[in-house]
Write a protein that binds this DNA or RNA. Structure first.
Length: 273
DNA sequence: TACCAGGTAAAAA
DNA sequence: TTTTTACATGGT
């Protein structure tokens, strides 16, 4: 089944971050085919003219697939905006069709960020791989992300065995056990989502901002504290000089109200050969 | 071997 | 109030 995505759209660029740091058993790239659980069952995505080829060909998958692939982002509007910035203008040409992929499961998004706090994305993925394999049964070769209920029932000591720090193990089990309605956050404005999330132990501003950008798909999010964002700002705008979070925040202001897309183009741009 | 890597909270000053 | 420290694994 062909699911149309408004052009420009590039599947490989949009899902690049699921292979850039290693293999993720819940977001699997194999020989040009991407697989993950969507709508409760394994789905295959493959690049196709005009959009993406989806198996199985169930109409109920159209909206989840479109959402996952960032179809809601206004790339045409961003390209017009980017023309006024030398760096973004070049990145928009070189990364044509890149959209931020939106993890559909809020629990997956938060746990993914918590694992990545402070350590390299490769190290984080290695820990998360063991977590996914331990707490979720593969369906047809691809793992669902572990269910919140399953982790609420786990003990932090089990997570420590998988490589979590003792603090992070408590944060993840605590998040799973909390009474916060993760699905209800999409009805709140950005800053209120940040407030609700950062009220939980282990979730700071950085984690909450990536949740806004990569789960809720909010268009104007700029995680200025992110090391990758700061490195990109440094490399592209400040001649390689190290930048503080505050400097990165100030540079980001020029990208409003397109900061989510700007951040993603800069981050992926940093990984270009 | 040591140090850094897409942070956060708690202790110390 | 602001600054310093501990923390986990993996790559170099």
């Amino acid at each position: 089944m062909l699911v149309e995505i408004r052009q420009p759209f590039d599947l490989a660029l949009t899902l690049e971050r699921f292979k850039a740091f290693g293999s993720d058993p819940a977001n699997l790239w194999q020989e040009g085919v991407f697989r993950r659980i969507l709508g409760g069952r394994p789905v295959e995505l493959e690049a196709a003219p005009g959009g993406v080829q989806v198996k199985p060909g169930d109409r109920a998958l159209v909206e989840p697939v479109r959402r996952f692939l960032g179809a809601s982002f206004d790339l045409a509007g961003f390209e017009t905006f980017a023309a006024s910035d030398l760096v973004l203008a070049r990145l928009v040409r070189e990364l044509r069709g890149l959209r931020p992929a939106l993890l559909p499961d809020p629990f997956e998004m938060l746990v993914t960020s918590i694992t990545a706090q402070q350590i390299s994305l490769r190290a984080a993925l290695s820990i998360r791989r063991r977590f996914v394999e331990r707490y979720a049964q593969a369906l047809d070769g691809v793992h669902p992300f572990p269910a919140r209920e399953a982790i609420a029932a786990a003990s932090p000591a089990e997570l420590v065995e998988l490589g979590f720090s003792s603090k992070k193990a408590e944060y993840v089990v605590g998040l799973a056990s909390s009474d916060l309605d993760l699905d209800g956050l999409d009805r709140l404005p950005d800053e209120e989502v940040v407030e609700r999330l950062t009220a939980l132990p282990g979730i700071g501003r950085w984690t909450a901002e990536w949740f806004l950008a990569r789960h809720l798909g909010r268009p104007d999010v700029w995680p200025a504290g992110d090391l990758g964002v700061r490195k990109a700002v440094s490399a592209f705008y400040l001649g390689g000089r190290a930048v503080s979070m505050e400097e990165a925040r100030v540079v980001g202001e020029r990208f409003g109200p397109w900061r989510t897309l700007a951040a993603h183009y800069l981050l992926v741009g940093l990984r270009l050969p």
